[in-house]
Computed example of a mutant assay.
Amino acid sequence: MLVRAITAPGLRRWCRSQRGAATACFPLGRALLGVRGADAAVFLQGLLTNDVTQLVAAGNAPPALYAHALNVQGRCLYDVILYRLHGSTAEEPHILLECDSSVLDSIQKHLKLYKIRRKVTIAPCPDLSLWAVIPGEQPGDASSLPKCADPALLLTPDPRAEVMGWRLIAKKGANLSEIIPGSQVGDVQDYHRHRYKQGIPEGVKDLPPGVALPLESNLAFMNGISFTKGCYIGQELTARTHHMGVIRKRLLPVRFPEPLPGVPEGAEILTQEGKPAGKFRAGGGELGIALLRLAHANEPLYIQLGGDRVKLEATTPQWWPKAAAK
């Protein structure tokens, strides 16, 4: 087994520290892809928005990073979370890449296209399962996490935002109640509702490949980009937008007055005067996520559904940087 584990005593201490919050574990349909070899980090460095070399740096290397792979026009192709599986710089670099399962074949072809003579192997990890761990509605304290020890699983804070809890990687078929005592397996739809409530995009519905722009998708807010690393595919437009300091549209959480079945993806959102304000991306029930013009985000907004004008409200997530929320 390639993934390091949290010791059972450490997990029990962590669970006790979360007393009062019902810890829910959500099975995710995301795919896991292993990238292993001496050139693993250097190889991914030229393809992703974040500084992947952090994962192989000596000292306090982060256990996980969020990033996007962009096309040459600077638009999002894949949203990924990278996990460091090697224990030290003395070990062969081994990085696990989490992606939308519907693009697993596509991302493998994308990586192999740029592999050339790099000393890396790229292979799916069907023997592993991925879980989101969220302690109720309360954001967790990363300092309470137990430390990794022997080869069974990986539990790490979600690198995108504290409100998203943790990511757990375990053996397929592992008993969650043994790994995290007192936890309950939750409905994955509740996980997506939590994401939409917090305005966290994930997967191709929220981030349409070749359409979504990284900074409009709040990539910088979610710790998913380095503006000081070297070149990578799609960097030019992204860096220019950042240095101009003007982002007129952003992904925002939206809420309808009541649950609505089948809101079309890409449906136009209008102001009260009928001006275009943005587009609905995806959602579930009364919650969703939409790309909106910031100039109209605080106005009354509507969407046309079957001849009816349905009201919706956009909100600014509390986890955003305070300057961005103004």
Rank of each mutant, 00 (worst) to 15 (best):
H192E: 12
L215W: 01
K172D: 14
E236L: 11
I180Q: 06
Q138R: 15
K171N: 13
I169S: 05
I179Q: 06
L153A: 13
Q189R: 15
T241F: 00
T121H: 10
G182S: 04
H242Y: 11
K197N: 13
L145G: 09
V133P: 00
R160G: 01
P124F: 06
L130Y: 07
L168D: 07
A220D: 13
G203H: 03
L237Q: 05
I200F: 04
Q184N: 09
S177T: 13
I179Y: 05
P126V: 01
P208E: 02
A132S: 15
K147D: 13
K229V: 03
A123R: 14
T238R: 04
G182I: 05
R160K: 08
V185F: 00
R160V: 03
N218L: 03
D187N: 09
E137D: 15
I200K: 02
D158F: 06
L213R: 12
L213V: 09
L155Y: 06
D187C: 03
I180C: 12
S177N: 10
Q138Y: 10
G182T: 01
K197E: 10
P146A: 15
W131M: 06
S129C: 09
V188W: 00
D158M: 08
D206E: 14
V185L: 08
E216N: 07
I169N: 04
I233K: 12
H242F: 09
L145F: 12
L207I: 02
K205R: 15
K229T: 03
S143D: 15
H194F: 06
K119V: 11
G173R: 09
T241W: 01
I225E: 00
Q235P: 06
V211T: 11
A149C: 12
E137C: 10
A123M: 10
T121D: 12
L168A: 06
D150K: 13
A152R: 11
S226Q: 10
K119P: 00
G224R: 03
Y196T: 05
R167Y: 02
V211R: 12
T156D: 05
A239L: 11
C125P: 00
G210L: 00
D190V: 03
N218W: 00
S143Q: 15
S143P: 03
A152E: 14
A123V: 11
H243I: 02
D150N: 14
K171S: 14
Y191L: 10
D206H: 10
I200G: 01
